[in-house]
Computed example of a mutant assay.
Amino acid sequence: MLTLTLTAALEGVNDLRPDDTEDNPFWYTFKVQCGSCREIHPNFVSVSRFEANDMSGSRGEANFVWKCKSCKRESSATIKIAPIPYQQASPPTRQKVIEFDCRGLEFTEFKPEGEWLATGIDSKSKFTAIDLSEGDWFDYDEKASEEVSIKEMKWEIRRN
């Protein structure tokens, strides 16, 4: 099992999470490494919890099925839980975002592409289409009359 964790300084917002529904799936973007030959795929790959791919030689399915170009071994990853909203904390704490059951591969680097959601702490304002791909995010909460932000993000992929 691999867990994607986040540590971030949230100011004025809470419940940071990917915009991930069946109608609008979020694509988790990673660098992938073969568990057999340790080769790292040169490109980022994307995984959706709503996509099911057949595994060759098996009746099983996985959210992500990958064949290493170097050793030709097939590997898979399945998202085990829905994303968990990141909660504002002071000081910022490392929190689980999502968990994967990986067979024969490891994700080595996460790229937070895609749209994220958050909620104003006091105002309950809904913030949508948050772009974290460039790092820090800033906006203004009209109801609370204050700036809100997401800063100092640190993504980690941890083995359980």
Rank of each mutant, 00 (worst) to 15 (best):
S48F: 03
E39N: 15
E147P: 03
D122V: 09
L6C: 02
T119F: 01
W155G: 03
G120V: 03
D136R: 11
D54E: 13
E156R: 10
E115S: 13
P92K: 05
Q95G: 08
F30A: 07
K67Y: 07
T7E: 08
R49I: 03
R159Y: 09
C37K: 12
P112T: 09
S36H: 14
G114F: 03
S76H: 01
L10F: 01
F26Y: 13
N14T: 10
E11W: 00
T29I: 11
D131K: 10
E142C: 08
E61D: 09
P25L: 02
W66H: 11
A118S: 11
A82F: 07
K154F: 10
L16A: 02
K151W: 05
A82N: 07
G114A: 09
V47P: 01
F100I: 07
W27K: 14
I84W: 04
S90F: 09
A129I: 09
T3S: 14
R59P: 08
H41W: 10
G104L: 10
S75W: 00
A89N: 06
L117E: 14
K69S: 14
G60M: 10
T3H: 06
A62Y: 01
Q88T: 02
W116R: 07
W116D: 05
F138S: 07
G35Y: 03
I84P: 01
A8C: 07
C68W: 02
E22T: 09
T29Y: 06
K151P: 01
